[in-house]
Every structure is written in structure tokens, then in C-alpha cells.
Design a binder for these strands. Structure first.
Lengths: 206, 206
DNA sequence: CATTGTGAACGGGTTCACAGCA
DNA sequence: TGCTGTGAACCCGTTCACAATG
């Protein structure tokens, strides 16, 4: 079912489908169609059907899709039918904001560890979590078996921290630092850089 | 030169080129090639040459590109050879973190206004900026001629705030709320949702 | 009758390969 | 010689259109 042949671009759309579907659930909408879902997301109905067909047959002709069933299926495909532990490195303003964000848990994630290099921050709490010193990162992350890391450190140390994370067994990194990371092939990296997205839009302004 | 025919996907890569080039500048690297730049970004040399060729001929055969010249050219293409004013709506943890972030100015942006709906926050300062009440948003944003907005408000009010921003003349919105926004066609929207990016990666884990 | 799942056609982005030039 | 700029070939994702079906 889940061949290697699924295009990465299709995988990248599934989380958006899931988000829209979960919102429908909150609104007590029981059924949807590729057209309805597509209109909510600005994606063609054909594309949604094609994407989903990569993983199975989830709909009923004439009726559409059961929202709750499709939520479960997509969660399973994306491996988010469980909660993933996350290690957060960097307890600056952004790190604090992320650590306090309440929206992770019902979408499959939970921050379980926080590290920083600043001795003054070590030992303090963010919510229920204590800030640890990065010198203990590798050991603690490996011991906890955490597979996902979030980087909110200065650009100058992002590469070094990324290496420590991968050595500790982390296989997915969400990088908020504005630098490309070089990591082993088995490690996935996603970047978040607001300025890159702003510059994408300024091209079309004026 | 800059036709309407430039694919959006090409535009989306230019900010990454610019980022890498500015980093080279910091490292006092005077010259680069499509191959060198490509290796730093994980993009093929041919692609970089093709992308740049959409806008002009910036290189020298046998030599490559002058870093500083190319920085200027790409900045001009992206319209970031000036500083854009930004209005930030939502002074929660994330809004505070973004407002305090020091990395905007040397990449073409500056936050000039902050709004929030919470009376307790109104009047307080973040850095040198005072938090205003959203009831004044439309008027003040229009008066200041701000064209770019950043949304760090709860999902439940994001659509409403987006509408107020567009009515105030904003033409580009960077949306941190985990909901799709529906806006007029002349308004650009970019989304930042860490969970969507995490779920993209969990597909490949385990 | 509405809507799915899908083969086929289409379109467009990427890579190739090389002429051209410093 | 080294590297750019680019037409052509290639590849792959999207759209189309329709048979199938509850």
C-alpha cells in the first residue's frame, strides 16, 4: 500500500487534509467529498482523490468520505495515530513560545525535553519542563529514545546542535534557524524561516 | 525581463539563494558558481542557472557570479532592496517572540505596529513598540500604508483579522494560525504551521 | 444521481548537454 | 580551460474524463 513510490509532494499535502478534516470533526460534520474538502483547501477535487488513492480506497461512490474514518486513515498513514516525543533545543523567546504552545498534543506531538547553552537558564522551568544544559543533550536524548528535534538556537550553532541530535538518534529536525543544515541521509529536515516566506510575497508586491 | 511567466516555484527559491549569498558575503566570499551555490543549498547547478536566467544574465563564463552583485540583483528582483513595514497582530507568546526577533532588519523587514484584542496588553511595550487595541487596526494600518501583516492570533479569530487587514490595504499575510484563510485574489498568503511540517516528517519515521 | 477511483492526456518544471565566451 | 546560458529531451505531477457503484 505505502510504496516508496508515493511522491513526497503528496505526503506534504496529507497533513493539510488532516487539519481540515479534524476541523470538520470539531464542527460535527460527519461526511465530506473530494470537492468539499478541495474547496476548503484550495486544491482540486481530482488531486485529492488521486492523492488518497495512493494509500487505499477510503470513499463511497455517491456518498463521499466519512470524516472520522478518513481522519483515522490519514493519521495512520502519517504515523500520527500516536503521540511523538520532541526535544526542543534553544530556550530563547521563540523556544519559550513554542514550549508553551498548547496546540501540539491533539495533533500528535509533545515536547518532553528542553535544552539550552546558557547556564543562567538551566534549571529554570517552562511550564512543567526543566531546562537542561546542552552538555547533557546527547546522553539524555538517546536514553529517552526521542526521534524528533526542534531547533530554536542561533544560526551560528545550529549545525553543531543538529549533529549532536543526529548522533543521539534523532531522525527528524524542524529547524527554525536561518541556515541550511547538513545531516546524514536518513535524517529529515524541515525549515521554518518567516523571512524567506515574506520575501516570496514581496516579489509580487507593488 | 520579469515576465508574468516566471513560475511561482522559481520565485520561492530565490529567497533561499539570497540567504546563502548573504551568508557568503559575511564570510567575505567574493565569487561563487552555480555549482558551489547548489551544493550549499542541495539544489542542482543547472536549476540555479535556469532560475537566474529568468531574470537576466548575471554571471561570467569561466568565472561564475560576483556574490555582491548577485545579492543586489536578487534583492531587486524580490523587492527587498528596501525595508518593508510589517504589522503584527497577536501579542501572545509567539507574537512577543517575533516582535523581539532581531533578524528582520538586515533582510528587508521591520515590524512597525503591534495589535492585540486583550485590554490588559494594550498600552504595554514590546521593545520600542506599544501594543494597540485591534479596534484601531483598520484605521492605523491604512494611515501608515502598511502592506504586510503577520498573524499570531488564535485560530478562531484569524479569518476575521485577515479580513480587517485586507480592508486596511494589506496585500501580503504571513499566517501562523493553523487555519486556511480566505482572502481576495490580490492578497498573498503564506502559512507557517510547525505541526504540518512535523507530520510531513513522521510519515517517514519508524 | 452523486461521487469515487483511475487510466490517459496534458502541461510544465527539471535535467541534460553543448555552444559560446571570458 | 571553466563556467554560464539555453534549447531540447525527459520526467513527473496534475487534470481530464469516464466507467463503476452505492
Amino acid at each position: 500500500m505505502v510504496d516508496k513510490t508515493v511522491p513526497d509532494i503528496v505526503v506534504g499535502r496529507l497533513p493539510r487534509y488532516l487539519q481540515a478534516l479534524q476541523r470538520m470533526q470539531q464542527e460535527d460534520i460527519l461526511t465530506t467529498s473530494s470537492q468539499d474538502l478541495g474547496e476548503r483547501l484550495g486544491i482540486s477535487a481530482a488531486q485529492i482523490r488521486k492523492d488518497l488513492s495512493q494509500f487505499g480506497e477510503f470513499g463511497k461512490q455517491g456518498t463521499g468520505y466519512s470524516v472520522s474514518f478518513l481522519v483515522n486513515q490519514v493519521q495512520e498513514i502519517l504515523n500520527v495515530n500516536k503521540v511523538w516525543d520532541i526535544v526542543l533545543v534553544g530556550a530563547g523567546d521563540l523556544g519559550h513560545a513554542i514550549a508553551r504552545y498548547q496546540g501540539f498534543s491533539n495533533r500528535g506531538f509533545r515536547i518532553v525535553m528542553i535544552f539550552d547553552a546558557d547556564e543562567h537558564k538551566v534549571g529554570k522551568q517552562i511550564g512543567k519542563l526543566e531546562i537542561h544544559h546542552v552538555s547533557n543533550l546527547k546522553e539524555k536524548v538517546r536514553a529517552a529514545g526521542v526521534k524528533i528535534g526542534m531547533l530554536t538556537v542561533p544560526a551560528s550553532v545550529a549545525q553543531k546542535v543538529a549533529e549532536e541530535l543526529t548522533e543521539a538518534g534523532v531522525q527528524a529536525i524542524l529547524n527554525y534557524a536561518p541556515v541550511p543544515l547538513s545531516v546524514p541521509k536518513h535524517v529529515r529536515v524541515q525549515h521554518i524561516d518567516p523571512i524567506i516566506q515574506l520575501q516570496h510575497m514581496t516579489f509580487y508586491l507593488e
